[in-house]
Every structure is written in C-alpha cells, then in structure tokens.
Nucleic acid binder design. Structure first.
Lengths: 130, 130
DNA sequence: TCTAAACCTTCCCACCATGGTAAGGTCAAA
DNA sequence: TTTGACCTTACCATGGTGGGAAGGTTTAGA
C-alpha cells in the first residue's frame, strides 16, 4: 500500500513516517517502480506500535529500544520492565515539578484579591518583592 | 553595565537577553560608543522578573502580558489573577495528561513479571494485542 | 606602550517532533 | 486526454536554548 493508506491505518502522518525513516527509527520502505514507498501490514503494525509508544510519552530513544526489544525473540521482560520503570520515574519527576509550580501559583492567586485595584501578590512575587 | 554582568545578576544568559530583545519581549538596550549593550539596575530587575515568570512555567506570550501588567500602574489585580488562573488550568490539564499516562504505564509494568522470559504485557499493549 | 585576555558584536547552525508549502512526478478513472 | 488524487523531494517554521565562528573593544599587566 502507499504511504497515505499506511498513514491512515497507523495513525501516523505520512510526513512523520518519512521522518521516522530519515532518522533511522524504521527501515527504509520498499519502493515501487514509480519510486513510491510501499508498505505491508507488518509495516503498519510497527507504525501503530510507535504511535502507542508516543502516546505513552516514550522518547524517540526509548522507542528505538522498545522496537528492538519487540523484535527480539530472546528479550527478557526484565529489560522491558526496566525501561518502563525508568520512564515512569521520569514522568514522576516531571509531574512533581509541574505540581510544585502549580501549587506555588495557586497560593499566589489565592492571596490575590482579583479586584479593580492594582495591588497583587502575584506581580509582587515575580518582581522579587515577595 | 555590560550584558555579561546583567546576565550574571539576572540569571538570564547573555544569549537569551539578546534573544528576548530580538523578539521584542524587552525593549532594545541602550548602546555605548563601542556598540556594546548597556544595562541599568531596572533592566536587570525586569530580566529577573522574566526569569521568575519562566520558572513558574509562563509562556512567552503570557510573560509579554505579565510585563505589560507589571508596568501598568492602572492594572487591575483581576486581570493578573485571570492570567494566573488560566495558566493554572493549563498546568492542571497537562499534569492530568501525564498522570494518566503514568498510571496506565504503572499498571502495565505492575503486571509484567520482569524475569528472563520474553512474555510482557507492556510490549503486548504497545503491539495492540492487549 | 604593547600585548594578551576577557569581553563584546553579529550571524549561522542545532536540537525535537511536527506541520506547512511549493514544484514537480505518477496513476487511475472518466 | 484531461483531471484530480496521490506521491516525491526540499525547504521553512515553531519555542527556548545552546554552540561556535569571525571579528571588534576594553582593560589589566609587563
């Protein structure tokens, strides 16, 4: 099938499919005489795997590893789990960082009257006066 | 003072100070005869304001507004608070999205034995088989 | 007074994942 | 044969930041 169909079936845009090929995340697609890329159901399956991995927030490097593990019949689930746990740790620290920011800001907003007067603890805090 | 000193005092790199000037976030700095940029304590104060705003996750556009409100003696704290609350909403939805991903992944990891065998619900889920 | 170091200037390139657009080739159906 | 839907490559943009090159300025010390 052509790239448009593969894009539609996998949920990855044609643009990104070409990009993934360019950066070596997936192998170069077969070509027809017309020079059009040609995809199999297996290719689409792989693209869908990538889409789901992205949806779970895995980085390109992590996805590279996941693809390798997926293809490796001798993989240990230990290795997969380790990768996932590492990603969870990463998520946790990012969530915590955002949560901290959120809470700081919420406290400031809470102490701001929000009326017609200019006095505002939010501005004061950004100013360094608070 | 020169840009290096202003960078050191404000915590914004010289690189970024020039960038902020280029995109119009801050006004063009004064220039000496040597064409070197010249900064005042007030300029540094403004840069610090930007640094603190960035630390709270505000976008460039939001910071543009914050700077305007900061400079506006006739601002209403209502407007500042509205901006902050909007940002908090944004943070909340991003936190929730990450949290959802995190929980999904944690469930998968939890059901993965993590041993020497290849069977792994994480891979299966990414594959679309689960 | 000369020189070297430390500063500054502008300009271009890179990241990452993604989208847009333009100029042109291919193919199938009407 | 024309039309329109598809494909190709190549370039540009995003946002926030850093790196580096090539060259000008200033300052401190020998």
């Amino acid at each position: 099938m052509q790239i448009g169909k593969a894009a539609q079936m996998s949920g990855i845009s044609a643009k990104m499919i070409r990009h993934y090929e360019a950066i070596g995340l997936i192998p170069s697609a077969d070509r027809r005489d017309s020079n059009y890329r040609d995809y199999s159901d297996d290719d689409v399956h792989q693209l869908s795997f990538i889409r789901r991995s992205r949806a779970l927030g895995f980085s390109m490097d992590e996805i590279r590893n996941l693809l390798r593990l997926w293809a490796d019949g001798n993989r240990s689930s230990r290795e997969v789990k380790k990768l996932a746990l590492g990603h969870i740790e990463d998520l946790d620290s990012r969530i915590k960082a955002m949560q901290d920011i959120r809470d700081t800001l919420a406290k400031l907003a809470n102490s701001c009257d929000g009326n017609h007067r200019p006095n505002c603890p939010i501005i004061e805090s950004l100013e360094g006066r608070a």
